[in-house]
Amino acid sequence: MKDPAPLRWLLIALALAFLGLFVGLPVVTVFVEAFRNGPGAYFDAIKEPDTLSAIKLTLLTAGIAVPLNVVFGVAAAWLISKYRFPGKSALLTLIDLPFSVSPVIAGLVFVLLLGARGVFGPWLEAHDLHVIFAAPGIVLATVFITFPFVTREVLPIMQELGSDEEEQALTLGARGWQILLRVTLPKVRWGILYGVILCNARAMGEFGAVSVVSGHVRGETNTIPLQVEILYNEYNLSGAFAVASLLTILALVTLVAKKLIELRIRTHRP
């Protein structure tokens, strides 16, 4: 059933105009603004010590948050796909929570709990532990924001593939860990990678939650997105966009990797 050609062209034109306006134009703008003062200024902005320390903190944060969430994601997906138990749908709703809680509130809860005036604030202070307005708080807020990603990608694959092979391994005498490492993980490895890529993109790019707990100390508690904000608010537009271009490249790489894995998952499925 084909639509008449004029309608077809009109719809294609409208859809492309909408995407061009909201997706294409912003990507182009980032790079145009970043190179406005030439490649020299671009690389100088990125080599700036505060920017480098922001990059380091972002890598550290993602380096902790992503592996933690992979372990959680696999455990939760195993739990939900392999067993029946009461409260399963409530658990699933709970796992989706960060998708609908404002990032600002995600930051706020950690301030209320661990900040200087928070529930555990005095205790932390007495032990000279700095969580809020320091790196640990940034990691915690990032873990909160990104914990559903791996579960959400691995769970449907585990559910679709079923548990027959795991049960066969069990009857052949395999132990739990052996089943996980030798049977289940190889089956869902592309799903895990998919989740890791999405989780990482969000972990490196998170702004609202991190902004609330970071304290914005230049060169110390700034991640890359916070560094973009600071440079932008100082009217250093080309600097802000140079740093923003790093995150834009990350986003584009994420999209390409995501597409490749989607193809891979599709062709490897029976």
């Binding site: 912003p26 999405l198 790019g205 702004f207 997105p225 995150l247 990350l250 994420t254």
Partner: peptide, 11 residues
Amino acid sequence: FALPTAVAGVT
């Protein structure tokens, strides 16, 4: 989904 919100904001 992939582009950090701060980048979207300034852009």
